[in-house]
Amino acid sequence: MPEYALEVSGLTKIFDRPAVNNLQFNVEAGEFYALLGPNGAGKTTSLRMVAGLLQPDAGEIRVFGNNAKTNPVDAKHVMAWVPDEPMIYDRLTPIEYLEFVAGLWGIEAQTAQKNAYELLDWLALSENSHERCEGFSKGMRQKVALAGALVHDPRLIILDEPLTGLDAGSARLVKDVLIERVNKGCSVIMTTHILEVAERMAERIGVISKGRLIAEGTLEGLQKQAGRKNSSLEEIFLGLVADDEHGQEAA
């Protein structure tokens, strides 16, 4: 039986209408999982519940076996959250920010320092490591936020649209860092609207519509499920979402 990095079952969140409706999916340890869906499908709400930023109305979330509701501290210890809008402190420098994050996660100072400088090098931020973040571009801020997520060596990285607003070079860097982490055994779950990224990077893809998982599997699996052999992910995705909407209207 595979080891699961993330187990989500019966996850439900209702605002004025159900945003997430009985969602169920698993991410295996060391797997790159992409969660796709049209705008307002419930992707971000689902991931925010997984990260502990939103309280689910029903359902269960387990992170490496730890129940995120009853044992949130242990669950949070092994995961990292990267939102689409990077939230960093304008008046701290990247290196100070990383030291602060390492302090929150209780990482030993020497390890944290080594990790921090390696990450800043890798993300081409070494030159700016002693500048305050207030003058940084969106791409630089996103890279600082990503470095913050990785400085404590998480086993599960949750990313919500991490490539939005990044230039080609920065996007490439972020993708390389994520692939490298997965190769080292880390699990990644990511939402994205850039379907080529999901197609190339993800081992399995989940498609979510109106808060429900409507399809899941490898690219080949989805092609089979949609009855569209040799189709691109974009065609499959649009077909699946349209079929689901027609099905719901008919019902």
């Binding site: 990260a51 501290v73 939230m87 402190y89 304008d90 929150l104 913050g148």
Partner: peptide, 10 residues
């Protein structure tokens, strides 16, 4: 300014 970071800390 970084509520998500503090909230997701263990």
């Amino acid at each position: 300014d970084a509520p998500d970071l503090v909230e997701t800390a263990p």
